[in-house]
Each structure stands twice: as structure tokens, then as C-alpha cells.
């Protein structure tokens, strides 16, 4: 084995949209799993997976909640796949003000998929477990990566430079100082 390579597990939920029946069992199960206490209630609108569906367009796309974004994007791609049109939003997992997906309906706080991480771990994420048609399947993939690989000086400099441009050198220095203190405590 190459000592400079280490393994990392990548968790993947694979989505076959041709197999999705639009049943929303995934939404139901995700919401129950994340209810507090666990399973105490059901509410698909709190699910971290939503099925974008449009009967007349025969469109069924399960999407998983990603990051929060404060404002919606200012333009969208419209994709044509196998003769059907899909808005870019159909594939986007952002918790975004353009729609009420991935937002806690009562508090308005964003929701994000956590791959159902828990102790002891589930064999498969909840949404995958209830998907009866294998539209969702779970794969753990081992990827090798270079353990010693560190960002080059060039990359880091570029990143910091853009922050400095945006916030000014002093603000960045101050933040870095604060962060290093926080790291110690």
C-alpha cells in the first residue's frame, strides 16, 4: 500500500429519476426520523428530501437539502432531458427563499440533510430504506486521497487575497486572530 494515500468513505445516495413513482415515502420517513423525539410526528414539509413533481410533464425528481442561501439566484437554466423540460430548481437542494422546501415551517430555519447520521448508525439512510422502487440507492464508496496533499501556498494566498479585497486587511487579520484564540480554548 502506498503510505502517502489514505482512504476516505464517501456516502452517496444515487437517484434514478426514471424509477421514481412520486410516492413521497422518502419525505414521510425523513420527517419522522428527524422529529424530536425521534418518530414522534410525521410532517413531509419538514423533510430534508422533497420530490419535485409535475404530473403533466411526467417529472419526478427527489432532491436532498443542501445549504442555505439568503437570496434566490438571478437566472436559471432550463434543461431539456429526453424531451422533457426541467428547471434548474428541480435539481437544486438549496434552502432558498424562492420556495418553501427545506425550511422548518414554524421557525423558518433552514433544514439540511445529515445523511441520517446517528448512533448506532443506520444501515441505510431512512429515505433509501423506504424507497420501494430503488429510485434511491445508497452507496458507500472508498476514495483514496493523498494524505500529505496540502493546499499549495498559491491556493491559500489566492483565497486570503480575495477576502482582503472584500473586507480589508485589518478585518481579516482581526478575524484570524479571533479564530486562533477560539481554536485554543
Amino acid at each position: 500500500m502506498n503510505a502517502s494515500l489514505s482512504a476516505k468513505i464517501v456516502k452517496e445516495i444515487r437517484v434514478d429519476i426514471d424509477k421514481c413513482t412520486g410516492c413521497r415515502a422518502c419525505e414521510m420517513a425523513c420527517s419522522a426520523f428527524h422529529a424530536i423525539p425521534r418518530y414522534s410526528s410525521v410532517n413531509p414539509s419538514k423533510a430534508r428530501i422533497r420530490v419535485v413533481s409535475d404530473e403533466l410533464n411526467d417529472e419526478y425528481v427527489p432532491i436532498r437539502a443542501g445549504d442555505y442561501t439568503p437570496s434566490e439566484c438571478n437566472g436559471r437554466h432550463i434543461y431539456t432531458i429526453a424531451g422533457k423540460q426541467y428547471s434548474e430548481c428541480s435539481f437544486c437542494g438549496a434552502s432558498c427563499p424562492s420556495r418553501d422546501y427545506f425550511v422548518e415551517p414554524d421557525s423558518g430555519l433552514p433544514l439540511k440533510c445529515d445523511m441520517c447520521e446517528c448512533v448506532p448508525p443506520l444501515e441505510e439512510p431512512m429515505c433509501v430504506q423506504v424507497c420501494g422502487t430503488d429510485a434511491l440507492t445508497y452507496v458507500e464508496r472508498e476514495v483514496e486521497r493523498d494524505a500529505k496533499r496540502q493546499p499549495t501556498r498559491g491556493e491559500m494566498e489566492e483565497g486570503i487575497e480575495s477576502l482582503v479585497k472584500k473586507y480589508g486587511m485589518q478585518a481579516v487579520m482581526k478575524t484570524l486572530a479571533q479564530m486562533s484564540k477560539g481554536a485554543k480554548s
Partner: peptide
């Protein structure tokens, strides 16, 4: 977008998974 509450939720969810 409201919750539906259940009397014995963990037991019911377990049955539901088996039924599924």
C-alpha cells in the same frame, strides 16, 4: 405543513417500516 401526532410513535414507525 403541520405535524400529525402519534400515540406510540416508535412502535408505529417500526411496524410501518416492516409493512413498507
Amino acid at each position: 405543513t403541520k405535524d400529525v401526532n402519534l400515540a406510540r410513535p416508535a412502535e408505529l414507525f417500526d411496524i410501518a417500516l416492516k409493512m413498507n
